[in-house]
């Protein structure tokens, strides 16, 4: 097949065009916000949140309401509960998060098992169905991704300060609690935006994998955000093309593409890559014998 035909193949259908735009928006938004998630060691919380959206999405499914709205409400409730437990809970952070997310996920499963098309609906929620989603749903999910991106850019400096040195942020009179709440809100929205593209199980991959890759490649937060967003974008395109030509699940393909980019960066990054480290390892024995 000639390259042009290869590239244009998926684009000739309106369905795949929409999917490409949607996947790009979502992976860029998740990639950008993911840098702060990774740096703050919140991978577990983001994974937990992705389980927590399930009951809201199912409830929306059952009542024919907007999926994003349902997911957002249930993620925000969970995020708020986690933040509260982290602050006040005597349990410690990890178990409190685990209790919240398993409970909510179990509730979601119980809800969805009451529907007639149990397996189909479950698959779609857990693993996404970007090619089988209505234009309206795609629009909603794209809008959510845009909000995440805009919010992260608008709050960039306060978010950096609160992540790096929360005591200084508070001492300077910044509303740290509200900034934290906004951050968790953005995280919840990012998770919701990824539902259609890759499903709730894999959205953590979009948040964490490109950001971790960017961490190997760049040194400043802002640069890492740009790199992470770009990786997310490239991964979503590679993933969707692979999914189109090899007929595999799009969500899995996108996250696999991101993981592939990560593996390449891990090996070949200029400074922190495994190869670069091996090459620049101090040759102690040689200098001693010389």
């Amino acid at each position: 097949m000639n390259p042009l035909a290869f590239l244009l193949g998926p684009i000739q259908f309106e369905l795949t065009q929409r999917a490409l735009v949607e996947a790009t928006l979502v992976s860029v938004a998740c990639g950008v916000l993911g840098v702060l998630v990774v740096q703050r060691g919140l991978s577990f919380i983001s994974d937990a949140l992705s389980h927590c959206v399930v009951p809201g999405v199912v409830a929306a499914f059952l009542t024919h309401a907007n999926r994003e709205l349902g997911g957002t409400i249930s993620a925000l409730i969970a995020a708020w509960a986690m933040l509260l437990l982290r602050r006040r809970g005597a349990l410690g952070s990890d178990p409190s998060i685990a209790v919240v997310f398993t409970t909510m996920f179990a509730f979601g499963l119980a809800l969805i098992s009451a529907t007639g098309s149990y397996l189909n609906d479950l698959t779609e929620i857990l693993f996404g169905a970007i090619l089988a989603t209505s234009p309206g749903e795609l629009l909603a999910s794209g809008a959510v991704a845009t909000v995440v991106l805009a919010g992260t850019v608008a709050l960039f400096w306060p978010l950096v300060l609160v992540s790096f040195d929360p005591v200084a942020a508070r001492a300077q009179g910044l509303p740290v609690d509200r900034i934290e709440l906004a951050f968790y809100g953005l995280l919840a929205l990012a998770v919701v935006s990824g539902l259609v593209a890759v499903g709730s199980m894999l959205v953590t991959g979009l948040l964490i994998v490109p950001a971790t890759t960017a961490r190997i490649l760049a040194r400043r937060v802002a640069t890492q955000m740009v790199v992470s967003g770009l990786i997310g974008c490239v991964a979503s395109w590679i993933g969707l093309y692979t999914s189109y030509y090899l007929r595999i699940a799009s969500g899995g393909a996108i996250v696999l593409a991101a993981a592939l980019i990560f593996a390449v960066a891990l090996l070949a990054a200029p400074r922190q890559g495994i190869v670069a480290r091996l090459l620049h390892r101090p040759r102690r024995t040689e200098t001693v014998t010389a």
């Binding site: 740096q39 608008a154 709050l155 400096w157 306060p158 950096v160 300060l161 992540s163 790096f164 040195d165 200084a168 942020a169 300077q172 009179g173 910044l174 509303p175 509200r178 900034i179 961490r215 760049a218 040194r219 400043r220 937060v221 890492q224």
Partner: peptide, 23 residues
């Protein structure tokens, strides 16, 4: 957080964030 990907000049300029406000 010493591992934070932030440069020296960014740390110092953030001393003025309180004067600049939330956005």
């Amino acid at each position: 957080d010493w591992s934070f990907p932030i440069t020296v000049e960014e740390v110092v300029v953030l001393g003025r964030q309180g004067l600049r406000g939330l956005f």
